[in-house]
Design a binder for these strands. Structure first.
Lengths: 213, 213
DNA sequence: AAAAAAATCAGGGTTTACCCTGATAAGATT
DNA sequence: AATCTTATCAGGGTAAACCCTGATTTTTTT
């Protein structure tokens, strides 16, 4: 009997999955969680074989939770579920210990196949996901400037957020207790990293790629 | 028997719903659609009582589809489902003919209640949604400056879009064949209407409220 | 220990954004 | 006919953004 835990902040989704899985003789849903805390508590009290984990857990980070589970419960397999087919998400989840990545637009059959596959120690990626990863890999080789894998320093993130709040250079300098010149440097670096020429474009791209909300 | 149609581009979600609803004696799921075209075709061939409609249909706009259904099949009730609790989304859906709005984090019980309620000609809003709408309404009354009902002139819309593309005043002037001063006037009017003090905030608010994508 | 990355700041410059007042003219509305 | 809205443009100013070069110190990585 495969002990399965469902994790998604959308209750109706986990309930739906629960109904789907209820029909399978070899699968038992032992819990449905809406947030990271619930998951940690449940894992502490009970052995779980497979966790169906949504990346987007509202407040909590599905990524962090994924790593947590993988580190603390090595034998528990994780199947990431997401509606986003961004390559960055997928590769991050896989790096953080997920044995598979499913999109929410996959069907019941594939879900069942994936659960059984990872339970037996294997991996499972849907065809679509595999394709995306492949494309990502080849893209990485070709073009150096990949906006999905930009890395920012602590300060750059802070400045980006303050820019998004509409603060001017002077205001940011006051908030961060650094000189205006330093703020300008960080902003300038951000513009270069995003390959844009003014803050308006910066903000737009940053929102578009989820770096700020 | 309530004839229900499920519309969501995430197959696994509609399948989950389908399983949930299968247990109810008075409800029959007569179809699951992943896009607008499928919905239109199915509606043309079959009478539907209630459509569970996700706002986010990938390519297609759930909003437009909502209006389409409401206009062409007046007796068909629409229950909007979304993971977003933005007041703008909710009110837009309700304006476009939805009889109710559910968040994806509502449970099975509430879903069933909502379906039966709208089927009988009523409306249904979950407590959370009601609260959000109320807040929105009271906000409208209190503060005269209601960002949701701002009206823009043709030029203002054009300038806003160009700003969002990151163009400078000069570039906009060239594109629109008007003087820089005129562009400045339009931009200035936009800043005033949105009640912000620079283009960065302008863009952010405009994106937030759906005036630009 | 050495190298790389990150954070800090400055001078000095150009460009763009932003603000205010004021004005004209065409088109829509009442 | 009178009014309102929209679109157009100008002068003249301040503030902010943006660019380039160059530099020091701290932190992190190798």
């Amino acid at each position: 009997m495969i002990q399965v835990l469902l994790v998604d902040d959308h209750k109706i989704f986990t309930e739906g999955l629960s109904f789907i899985l209820a029909n399978e003789a070899d699968i038992a849903v032992v819990g449905e969680c809406q947030n990271a805390l619930q998951v940690k508590q449940l894992l502490a009290s009970q052995a779980i074989d497979v966790v169906l984990l949504d990346i987007n857990l509202g407040q909590d980070s599905g990524l962090d939770l994924c790593r947590y589970i993988h580190e603390h419960y090595a034998s528990t397999k994780i199947l990431a579920i997401s509606m986003y087919q961004e390559e960055s998400f997928i590769s991050k989840m896989l790096k953080n210990g997920a044995s598979g990545y499913l999109l929410k637009n996959t069907g019941r059959e594939e879900l069942l196949k994936a659960i059984r596959s990872v339970y037996q120690g294997g991996n499972y990626q849907s065809a679509v996901v595999t394709e995306i990863i492949m494309k990502g890999l080849s893209r990485q080789k070709q073009q150096e400037h990949n906006i999905y894998q930009l890395r920012f320093t602590r300060r750059e993130k802070e400045v980006l957020e303050l820019i998004a709040k509409g603060l001017t250079t002077r205001e940011m300098a006051n908030v961060l207790f650094i000189s205006e010149k330093t703020v300008e440097t960080h902003r300038s670096n951000l513009l270069a990293k995003f390959d844009v020429k003014n803050v308006v474009s910066l903000l737009k791209v940053a929102i578009e790629y989820g770096y700020v909300k």
